[in-house]
Write a protein that binds this DNA or RNA. Structure first.
Lengths: 114, 114
DNA sequence: AGTAGTTGCTTGGAAAATACTAGCAACTAC
DNA sequence: GTAGTTGCTAGTATTTTCCAAGCAACTACT
C-alpha cells in the first residue's frame, strides 16, 4: 500500500459531518420527532402522543434544537384559539429519503430482542 | 378528500421500524461508533479515541448493545498480548450506505452553530 | 528486577440528561 | 361554573453518562 505497509494507521474516525448529524439525531427522541413530522405537520400535543413517552420539557427542548438547526419550523395561528404547528423545513424535507432508507434498513435488519 | 374533510386525522406516528432504529441510534455515541467502524475495524482504545469524549463504561455498554443487535462482532486474538477487534457484521455493513447518505445530508444541510 | 505504558475492560460516585408532575393562560363545550 | 384541551414552563426525582481509579496481562526500557 501507499504507506509501504509499515506505518500504523491512525485510529478510525467517524466522518465529521456524520458526527455532526449524530450530535442532533443521537439525542433521545430527535429522530422520532422528525419521523412523526415526516408524515405530516403536527402540534405539540400530537407530537407528544406520537412519541409515546417523551416529557413535555424535553419535547419543547428538542423542537427548539431542531428549529435552531433549521430542520423544523414553528407556525402559529393566533386563533382564537392559538394553534401551533411544527413542520419540516426544506433541510428537514431533504432528510426524509435518508429516514425512509433507515426505516427500510431497520425493517430488514433489526429484529425484536428476544 | 377521502375522509370527506370532516374526520380528524389520527396524530402522526413515526414508522415503527424507524422508531426501532432510533432506539439504537438515538443513544449517545451509537451512531458515531458505527461511523468509526464504517472506516475499518478497531479495538476498544481506538474507538475511545475515535469518539473523543465517551466514557469507557458507556463505550463498553454501546458495543454490547450493538453486538446484541447484530450490527457489530467482537473478534478476540488471544495473543499474547490479547487483542480485540470490533467489526461491522453484515447488518451493520448494510447500514453503511444510509450512514454515508446521512453524512452527505449533514454536509449540505447542517451548519455550525453561530 | 523494577518502572512505565498500553490494552481491554469494570466499578463507584458526580454531573448531566430526561421523566414526572403540577401549574398557567386561553380557549371550547356542556 | 366545571371540565377538558392546547401549548407550553418549572421544580423535583430518576436515569444516563462522565470521571477517575483500579485490575490483569502484556511490552519496552533502564
Amino acid at each position: 500500500m501507499a504507506d509501504g505497509g509499515t506505518v500504523e494507521h491512525a485510529p478510525p474516525q467517524c466522518d465529521a459531518a456524520l458526527t455532526h448529524a449524530f450530535e442532533l439525531l443521537g439525542k433521545r427522541w430527535s429522530g422520532v420527532i422528525l419521523g412523526a413530522l415526516m408524515e405530516r405537520p403536527a402540534g405539540f400535543a400530537a407530537l407528544r402522543r406520537a412519541t409515546g413517552g417523551i416529557s413535555d420539557s424535553v419535547l419543547s427542548e428538542r423542537l427548539g434544537e431542531l428549529g435552531a438547526a433549521g430542520l423544523v419550523v414553528r407556525e402559529v395561528d393566533e386563533g382564537p384559539p392559538v394553534a401551533v404547528r411544527y413542520r419540516l423545513a426544506p433541510p428537514g424535507e431533504a432528510l426524509v429519503p435518508v429516514l425512509r432508507d433507515l426505516g427500510d434498513w431497520a425493517r430488514d435488519h433489526l429484529h425484536a430482542a428476544p
